[in-house]
């Protein structure tokens, strides 16, 4: 009934993306902590986020966060919407569709500067 079906995969993905986002949070609080060491240290540290390699990691983070967000709503609907459990499979398909559809424009903006795609968000030059 459960093993190998959508309920298992949604649960496993929720757990993996949750742990991944948590790992990033633990790194991010430290890199923000560089603010305590002044502008030179912070700017050198944070400039890593602009590199192509870290941008790829950022895309993974954003994809994971989007899935975790949409699937979280699905879990809440299963819990509080009387028909939630019956439609959990359909909702999982919707979660995957929303994740992909919202991920693509985000990926464009995150990777744009690497490939020179127009993003219009580099005001003033970096």
């Amino acid at each position: 009934m459960y093993r190998g079906q959508s309920g298992m995969w949604s649960w496993l993905l929720h757990r993996i993306t949750g742990l991944g986002v948590l790992l990033f949070l633990l790194i991010h609080v430290v890199d923000i902590g560089l603010l305590n060491f002044g502008s030179k240290v912070y700017n050198e540290g944070i400039s890593l986020f602009g590199t192509a390699a870290v941008r790829v990691l950022s895309m993974a983070l954003i994809g994971g966060l989007l899935y975790h967000s949409f699937n979280g709503v699905r879990i809440i609907l299963i819990d509080f919407w009387p028909k939630g459990a019956r439609y959990q499979g359909v909702m999982f398909a919707i979660v995957m569709a929303l994740t992909i559809v919202s991920f693509l424009p985000m990926a464009y903006f995150v990777m744009g500067p690497v490939f020179g795609w127009p993003t219009g968000n580099l005001r003033g030059g970096a």
């Binding site: 986020f49 941008r55 950022s58 985000m106 903006f109 968000n121 005001r123």
Partner: peptide, 9 residues
């Protein structure tokens, strides 16, 4: 990441 690029941070 969208309103301003991360390299502007």
């Amino acid at each position: 990441h969208v309103a301003t690029d991360v390299s502007c941070t």
